[in-house]
Amino acid sequence: MSTSAVAVSKHRAPGFWQSTNGKKIVMAVTGCILILFIIGHLLGNLLIYAGPARYNAYAAFLHFDDTLLWIIRSVLIVSVVLHIEAAAQLWLRNKRARPVNYSRKEAIRSSYASRTMYWSGPIVLAFVIFHLLEFTGGFIHPGSRFIAGDVYHNVVAGFSVWWISAWYIFSLCLLGLHLRHGLWSMLQSFGIPHSRAREVVLKRLALWIAVVLIAGYISIPISVLTGLVK
């Protein structure tokens, strides 16, 4: 028998998690969960403009049942872990898929955001860890004392340090980039087909959602720095 055609040896098919499509579906679902969190988190944080009392009350409300809080946190942690695990595995696979690189390669249609997912992701992760250490744990809190329970104070004090605000703004912009592609990519990976015309609309929608979310978040450190929120 010739081998120049195809092998007859049959393999077991890769399962859901082994397939790139399966991993991307996992990333889409976990990404969706994380986006919902980002929206909720923003809506809560915007209460800072309503003054210390309501903001702190909101923070307290989040803690009204620790079991429930931890269930939600677990969901988020699992999502983050799966999202990263899938991304990391795909990244490795993608490196292997092109062992010899092009000497020259132009990007013709892809957005800057979509091409930078692999480094906007890790930076956002580092930011989230920093964020948790600063505002949830209170381990990093330069320039002032962390007061558990007085979230309003912690936020205002934290953002009063210019470089912390700068780091937040930078990271949030990257999160925006990540969301801009992620929101659209999620639909594709999960398998919600759209015609080419609708694709354009949806991509624009994804951009605006990302802009609005990030503008909302960034407004807080800026307000603190400019003294709007004291």
Binding site: M1, S2, S4, A5, V6, V8
Partner: peptide, 13 residues
């Protein structure tokens, strides 16, 4: 049919 094993394909031949 190649998948079914009844046809063997010889490309570049």
């Amino acid at each position: 049919q190649v998948q079914a094993g009844t046809v063997t394909m010889f490309p570049r031949t």
